[in-house]
Amino acid sequence: MTSDETVVVSLEGALGRIHLNRPEALNSLNLDIVRKISDGIDALEDNPAVRAIALTGEGRALCAGGDIKMIWQVGRTAPQEALAFWAEEYRLNARISHLRKPWLAVMDGICMGGGVGLSVHGSHRIVTEKTRFAMPETGIGYFPDVGGTWALSRAPQHLGFWIGLTGATIGAADTIAAGLADAMVPSEALPTLLADIASGQALESAIKAHAGDPGVSMLKDNAVLIDSVFASGDMEEIFAALQANGSDFAKSTLALLEAKSPTSLVLTLHLLRAAQSSASLETCLDREYAADALILDGHDFYEGVRAAVIDKDRNPIWSPARLGEVDQEGLVSAINPLPSLFSTATADDL
C-alpha cells in the first residue's frame, strides 16, 4: 500500500475494498476518515459488480479508536463540534448494520473503540491470532459508544458487561465467545481469503475454508461467574460479589475495575442494562449520543484523556474518587435526550 490517501477505496473483482491507511495513528478515526468511509460505501454499495465489501487496515491495527484528542480539545469550549463528530460516526455505525451487501470486517491487530463500531455491526466479522479487541473507555472517564452498548449487552452470560466495564483487551477466542466476531482466520491466510471472495466465492464458504481454531476462551471458562456477578444492576454489588468470590479471576477482574472511573462504571452499567431492553441499535446510539453531552459537561473524561493521551502519566485523579460517592440516581437523571440522529428512531426512556 503506497497511496497517501487515509482511506483507499478499490474494486477487486467482486469484492469492494475499504482500506484504512493511517498506520502511524493506528488507523484512528477523524471526521474526514468517517466521511471517506461513508463515501466509499456509497460507491461500492451502488456498484452492481460488487458482491461484498471488506474493511481492512494498514499496519498493526484495523482501527484503534476515534479522535478523542480532538474531543478533549474542543469539548469544553465548542461541545457542538465534538457532538457533530459523534453524530456522523454513529450514523455510519448504524448504516453498516443495514447495508444491502455483506460487510466483512477484518479485525487483524488492534480493534478498539471506533474500530469496534466499524466491525461488530457488520454481517461478517473475522478475527486473527493478532486481534487485540477492546472497549477501553471506562479507563478514560468515558463509556462504550459507537453502538457498543447494543453489541455488548447482547453477548451471552453478561460477557459483554465484563468487556465493557473492565475495558480489558481480549483476543480472538474471547471475541468470538462474546458473539462479537464470527470466525478466526490466520493472518497469513487473509490475502487468499480476500482473493477467493474477489473471484466470486460466497463469503460463508470462503471464511469456512480458511477458518482456524481460535483457542481457549478465558471468558467462556469463567462465564458462570461472570453471569452471576454482572447480572447485578449496582456496581457496588458487583464489587462486593467479586471480593466475596475470591478466585484468581475475580481478583484480577476487581483490580481492573478499581482502576476505572467510578462515574464511568456507574454510567456504563446503566447504559448496558438499558440497551438490553432496547429494540434497535439506533435507539442505543441515540442514548449514547445523549450521554456524550453529559460527559462533555463533566470532569472524568478530560482527566482520563489527559492521563492516558496528553500527559501520559497514567495516573488519573477521578472525581468522585470512590464508587460509593457517585450519585447514581442524579447521574442517570442528568442524561437529557437529544434529537434523534435517525429519522425513524426515537429514544427509549433514558
Rank of each mutant, 00 (worst) to 15 (best):
L285E: 03
S278P: 00
S278C: 14
A279T: 08
Y302P: 02
V305W: 01
G304D: 07
A291I: 07
I295F: 07
T268A: 10
S280L: 09
L267Y: 13
S278I: 06
E303Q: 14
L294C: 06
A274Y: 00
H270A: 01
L267M: 12
A274K: 14
L294P: 00
S278A: 15
L271N: 01
L285F: 09
R273N: 14
E282H: 08
C284Q: 01
G304S: 09
S280C: 06
F301V: 08
A274C: 13
L294E: 03
V266M: 05
A291F: 01
D292R: 14
V305K: 07
L296K: 12
Y289F: 15
F301W: 13
F301C: 06
S277M: 09
L269R: 14
L269S: 11
S280P: 00
A293Y: 01
Y289I: 05
G304R: 08
D297L: 09
F301Y: 15
C284H: 05
V305L: 08
D297A: 15
R287C: 08
R273E: 12
G304N: 08
L285S: 02
A290P: 09
A275H: 06
H299A: 04
L267C: 09
D292W: 11
L269P: 06
R306W: 10
L285R: 03
E288R: 00
S278K: 01
C284R: 00
E303A: 14
L267P: 03
S278V: 00
E288H: 02
V266H: 08
D300Q: 08
D300G: 02
R287K: 12
Y302D: 06
L269Y: 10
R287Q: 13
R287A: 13
D286F: 04
L294Q: 04
S280D: 04
G304F: 03
H270S: 10
R306L: 05
A291L: 02
F301A: 00
A279L: 11
D292P: 00
D297H: 14
A293Q: 04
D297N: 15
A279F: 02
C284P: 04
L296D: 03
G298Q: 08
A293I: 01
S278E: 03
R287S: 11
E282G: 05
S277P: 04
L272V: 04
Y289D: 10
F301T: 02
V305A: 09
D300V: 02
L294R: 11
S277F: 04
A291G: 05
R273L: 12
L281P: 01
T268I: 05
A290K: 11
A279V: 12
L271K: 04
T268L: 00
H299R: 13
Q276P: 00
Y302S: 07
H270V: 01
D292Y: 14
I295A: 11
I295K: 15
L281V: 10
S280G: 08
E288L: 05
E303F: 05
L269K: 13
G298N: 06
